[in-house]
Design a protein around this nucleic acid. Sequence first.
DNA 1: CGATCCATTGAAGCCACTCAAGCCCGGTGG
DNA 2: CCACCGGGCTTGAGTGGCTTCAATGGATCG
Lengths: 240, 240
Amino acid sequence: MNPKLRLVKQRHRCEHCLFRRFFLSAGLNCDEIDQAGQTTTTNIGPYRPGEYLYHAGEQCNALYVVHAGTVKTEMVTFDGDLHVSGFYLTGELFGADGINKRNFVADAVAVENTWVCELTFDNWEKLAMDYPGLQGQLISELGRVIAHKELEALSNHYHLLEHRLMSFLSDLLNRIKERQGQQSNEIELAMTKTDIARYLGATPESISRALSKLEKSGYIKNTKRKIYILKDQSCLDAVI
Amino acid sequence: MNPKLRLVKQRHRCEHCLFRRFFLSAGLNCDEIDQAGQTTTTNIGPYRPGEYLYHAGEQCNALYVVHAGTVKTEMVTFDGDLHVSGFYLTGELFGADGINKRNFVADAVAVENTWVCELTFDNWEKLAMDYPGLQGQLISELGRVIAHKELEALSNHYHLLEHRLMSFLSDLLNRIKERQGQQSNEIELAMTKTDIARYLGATPESISRALSKLEKSGYIKNTKRKIYILKDQSCLDAVI
DNA sequence: CGATCCATTGAAGCCACTCAAGCCCGGTGG
DNA sequence: CCACCGGGCTTGAGTGGCTTCAATGGATCG
């Protein structure tokens, strides 16, 4: 990641940005937030689809939030298969796997045209000295990540691929709604279905069949780039 | 969890306790550590095998570390299957899934006779005010948990159960060695093989068969309560 | 010493994978 | 403009690994 080549002027505020929420919760007022954002965070992009933000093993010096677009993190299994470990939407934190050992566990790749917001650990520590509440905000967010991964692991153990897929789609929709703050049943897929397959530990063929089954059962409507959720996930147990 | 009924006098220091490492890293000297430990942490136990430490959904007011014994966390899938989301050995942090929303995502159950060390968020915040380095320690530890879960998810997608099982055993051995600080190839299993099955998303029958295969291939020696690792996990790709 | 749970082994069925082919669509170049 | 190409998506048949169902042996505990 080379900021010098890619630095773009921040045109609009990071409305949904996690860092902004941190600052708000820590008690900063609007002016302070603007100042803190401009002096401590760096906006990087655009990354083109398929472009790497960083590679596994590289040094990690910062926290990252998706400013616009979508990021996936992926790793290669010992037998050469590609595994997508997560998708990250606008406003979401990613790269937290690098915090402990200061280098990344997974690659990060842009799924679509993407900008990210970088906040170096150095700047974070300076901010944290001025605003002690910030550390607690980060701890809380990391706890959220852990809880989410726990639930992710749970649904990864559903026997039928249809169920894992439905659970993934529901989670995606929830995160979209959380960001937009409005009801919607539409998921605009930034990632390919092959990527979804790699995330769920399945083949594209199986995903295709599972989507067909879910559609036939009336749970979703499946188009090329969009998926509509027609029933709540709580109806899942009725899926046969 | 009722401290009043269960509070036992702390007989020996928490040598391997995560909290102790936090205090050390934050720059406390031995006297301060002893004082901080005695005034802010509570030692609870013994929990008997199968006994619940807390249930999913209950309020979470503290950080927990295994003082002695083994803890498993588990959740029930929508179709009634039990899923073990993690095993926690002496000295390891658990319950971090409750930090964000202040209530637990998974149940915590004692696997063997177990004592745990409790540090309430209230006490944590008091400590953090006196020793600012502590917050960073916790952030780092949560980052470690996230990185571990990422790698866990990776190996959960290995195609063959033998590989997932071998990966689990290697991870377990690494954690044991990390605590003991000595080389060893022996894993004393606190959990049943049925629990391992529930952790790996498999049936006890499949685990039994996978263990047999790994033993025939010379990777492990399998006894009732102990497993010996005979080859490094890096040889995994040779498993057929 | 019976009861219970765990572990193991065998036989049959099912789901997802593999291999293969065809379709759709966007991009490229003649 | 159109032919060509390539990647992603879909559908079909056959294989393989894990599950299910069933039965037995062994260990622990009241």
